[in-house]
Simulated assay, not measured.
Amino acid sequence: MNNKIKVLFTACALLAFGCSCDNKPKDNGADYTISPEAGTSYKSGDEVKVKVSLPADTKPDSIVYMLDALKLGVAKDSAGISIKTDTIPLGIKVITAKVYAGGKDQEVTTNIILLAAKAPELLTYKVEKVFPHDTSAYTEGLQYADGVLYESTGEPGHSTIRKVDLQTGKVLMQTKLGAQYFGEGLSVVGDKVIQLTYREKVGFVYDKNTLKLLSTFTNNVGVEGWGMCFDGKKLYTDDSTNRIFFLDKDTYKQTGFIDVYDDKAKVDSVNELEYINGKLYANVYQKDDILVIDPKTGAVLQKVDLKDIYPMAGRPQDRDWGNNVLNGIAYDAATKRLFVTGKKWPHLYQIKLTPAP
């Protein structure tokens, strides 16, 4: 790019950024401001009072208020409105007021950060049974269906999709991915299995019974492909951030999203996903936490720390334990068994979660 063009582009970008952050209208007419101040945090359930301040000599004909793309209402004066937040998905919310006065209209914007209403309930766990797990399996996706484990493994040249015997940990059937692909999350959807890839922007569709590749699709949802699960109607995927996307189960196109927050901040690196009894279970990459997430709002409802499930003292010292971390959640709905494992771990654990003392 020509250096003069670069300078011009940079100047324009800085100017645009500055204008978007000062709570002032896009037009340089009347000096309107809006509250609350940009970046103010609220808890879900809090009432947010929004008010536009106008010059003393300005009488508005009407003020239209928007939350993101949703119209909240119309006011005839600058007294403001109140926003109820108990059912709003969490995260950064843009508030826009469009002021009509003197035959002109101008917009003024701000934003808030909506957090979970309360701290997540802390859970504890009990190991009920231990099963063998293939130590060559860099586990990225895991699901229990039809009496077997469906597992997606990663690493270029070693990525697979496989069926695994729960009792023995032995591979019953598998399909290898091309050497250029890094396998990620998977989900069983009807008579098919869907598998993501890490950065290759490709998704695979397999026959559930034979694991024969049926088709591929372009996956441009999110910055990377990570975890995946299915609630019977739609797919959920994530991408290394705190965002969980909704996908159409037939077209694999995005239909919506939630952002994951607890009562203090966003929770990044949401990874392997499992849908259990109306909630999303997710591990946090390179941490020992499993989160229970509200799929409607993104609020972290519960959290369990599994750091001692595979004690460091009992692990071989020649392994890359900073990389071979907890990753893999599966649920047997018929018997209510919950399974967890990790990348190249020798064990898969059946656990029971209960409230912490």
Rank of each mutant, 00 (worst) to 15 (best):
V94D: 06
I112E: 00
V148A: 14
I112W: 01
E155G: 11
Y100N: 02
K104F: 07
G147Q: 11
E140T: 11
Q143N: 15
E155M: 14
P120E: 00
A117Y: 04
A97G: 10
S152N: 15
S136V: 15
T139N: 07
P120K: 00
G147Y: 09
G91E: 07
I95D: 04
V108D: 04
G157S: 14
A101R: 03
A137E: 04
A117S: 08
Y100H: 04
A116H: 02
I112K: 01
P120Q: 00
G102A: 07
T135Y: 11
E128Y: 10
Y138L: 05
L142N: 10
Q106H: 03
E155T: 14
K129I: 06
E151N: 11
A101C: 02
K129W: 07
A145Q: 15
G103N: 02
E155Y: 14
E128N: 14
G154I: 13
S152L: 15
A137Y: 04
I95E: 03
A145H: 15
F131Q: 03
I92L: 02
L114N: 01
Q143L: 13
T110K: 05
Y150I: 13
T110I: 06
I113H: 00
T109A: 12
Y125A: 02
L123K: 07
K98T: 13
S136F: 14
D105M: 07
E121G: 09
A119I: 00
V148Y: 13
Y125C: 03
Y125R: 03
I92G: 00
T109Q: 15
D105C: 07
D134R: 09
D105E: 08
I95G: 04
D105W: 07
T139Q: 06
A137K: 03
L142K: 09
S136T: 15
G103W: 03
N111A: 02
Y100P: 00
Q143A: 15
Y138Q: 03
G102F: 05
Y125G: 02
A119D: 00
D146I: 15
G102M: 05
G102Q: 05
Y138V: 08
Y144H: 13
G147P: 12
V148F: 12
